[in-house]
C-alpha cells in the first residue's frame, strides 16, 4: 500500500516502461511493413525502423487498394470474418445452453459427463491432428464418399470444413456454469412460477444477466479462430477458401522456402493485417474481459 499511495509516479514509471516493452515489437513490425524488400535486406537495422522513402506497397495490398501481389486478398478477409462470426455465434450459444444445463438441471450422469468434458481440455491438441484429418477425409456420405467413407474426398477442400470442427468450447461451458453458480435461482424460480417455459427463462431472464461472461467467451473464441492458420491451411487447397492467418503461414513457408531470403516486409505486413483486426476487436470489447471473468470468479 505504501508504494501505491505515497509515490504514485513510481507506479507510472514501472507501468510505462512495461507498456513500452509490450508494444515495441508491434511498433517495429509497423515500421518494417513500410519498407521494400530491398530496403530491408540491404540496410543495417535501426531501433526506429522507419526508412525513407516510405513504401506503401504492402499497405495498399492490406487495404485492398491494389491486390496485384495477393489477388486473393479479398477472399482471405472475407473467409476470416465469416468463419470468426460463425464460431462466435455457435460457441456462445453452445456454452450458454450447456453451461446452464450443467448448473441448473439434474440429470443422470451429469457429474461424470462434466468431468469427462473437463478432462478433454487437458489433452494436448497435437494428439488430434492426424486423426482429425483422417476423419474429415473419410467422413461417410460427404463429398462423394459412400457409407464406408470411401470413394470421395469427404470434407477436404470444402468450405464446410472451415466451419464444422471444434464448435464446442469446454472452457466456455465451464465458465458459464461457474458464473451461474453465483447467480441466485430466485429470479428463474419466479419466472417459472409465472408459467414461462425453460427457453423463455433461459433466453429472456438468464441470458441478459450472463452477458459479461458470454462476451468473454465470444472474444476469446473470436481471437482464437481469427488467429487459427492450421485448419484452412491443412484441410483446403483452393486459395478462395483460405483465411488471412493461413495465408500468412503459407507465406512464411513460401517466402523463406528454397531461396533462403525471408521477405520480411511482406511477411510482417501480412502479419499486421492479421494482427490489427484482433487488436481492434479487443480494444472495443476489452472491458468485458475483466468484468466477465470477474463475474465467474467471484466466490466461484
Amino acid at each position: 500500500m505504501t508504494i501505491r499511495k505515497k509515490i504514485p509516479w513510481v507506479r507510472y514509471i514501472i507501468l510505462g516502461i512495461t507498456c513500452l516493452i509490450f508494444i515495441y515489437p508491434l511498433f517495429y513490425a509497423v515500421g518494417v511493413s513500410f519498407m521494400t524488400t530491398n530496403q530491408f535486406a540491404t540496410t543495417p537495422p535501426s531501433l526506429i525502423p522507419f526508412q525513407r522513402p516510405l513504401s506503401f506497397f504492402h499497405m495498399r495490398t492490406l487495404l485492398l487498394i491494389n491486390t496485384q501481389r495477393e489477388p486473393n486478398m479479398p477472399f482471405y478477409y472475407l473467409n476470416s470474418v465469416l468463419r470468426t462470426a460463425w464460431y462466435i455465434v455457435w460457441t456462445v450459444l453452445i456454452s450458454f445452453v450447456a453451461g446452464y444445463v450443467f448448473a441448473r438441471l439434474r440429470f443422470r450422469g451429469k457429474n461424470a459427463i462434466f468431468l469427462i468434458l473437463l478432462m478433454t481440455t487437458m489433452i494436448p491438441p497435437v494428439v488430434t491432428m492426424a486423426p482429425t484429418y483422417l476423419m474429415m477425409a473419410r467422413f461417410p456420405l460427404i463429398g462423394g464418399n459412400n457409407i464406408l467413407g470411401q470413394g470421395g474426398q469427404g470434407f477436404l477442400d470444402t468450405y464446410a470444413v472451415l466451419l464444422v470442427l471444434n464448435l464446442v468450447n469446454i472452457l466456455g461451458i465451464f465458465l458459464v456454469r461457474l458464473s451461474m453458480n453465483t447467480f441466485p435461482r430466485a429470479i428463474e424460480d419466479s419466472g417459472r412460477i409465472d408459467g414461462a417455459n425453460i427457453f423463455r427463462v433461459m433466453f429472456q431472464l438468464v441470458f441478459p444477466i450472463q452477458k459479461p461472461i458470454l462476451a468473454y467467451v465470444a472474444i476469446t473464441t473470436g481471437v482464437l479462430i481469427w488467429n487459427d492458420w492450421y485448419v484452412p491451411f491443412v484441410f483446403t487447397d483452393r486459395p478462395q477458401f483460405q483465411t488471412l492467418a493461413a495465408a500468412v503461414s503459407r507465406l512464411t513457408s513460401v517466402a523463406i522456402g528454397q531461396y533462403g531470403i525471408p521477405d520480411w516486409p511482406r511477411i510482417i505486413a501480412m502479419g499486421l493485417g492479421l494482427t490489427i483486426p484482433s487488436v481492434v476487436m479487443f480494444a472495443i470489447f476489452q472491458r468485458h474481459i475483466v468484468s466477465g471473468l470477474a463475474s465467474a470468479a467471484v466466490k466461484g
Binding site: 507498456c19 517495429y28 535486406a41 537495422p45 512464411t252
Partner: peptide
C-alpha cells in the same frame, strides 16, 4: 495500460514469432 499489457495475447503466434525471429537475426536483427 491494462489494454497494452493484454494486447500481445490477442496477436497471432504465426505473425508475432516472425517479429521476434527478425529481432535475433544475426545480420538484420536489432
Amino acid at each position: 495500460i491494462r489494454s497494452i499489457w493484454y494486447l500481445p495475447a490477442v496477436t497471432a503466434p504465426v505473425a508475432t514469432t516472425q517479429i521476434f525471429l527478425m529481432f535475433i537475426d544475426p545480420s538484420s536483427g536489432i
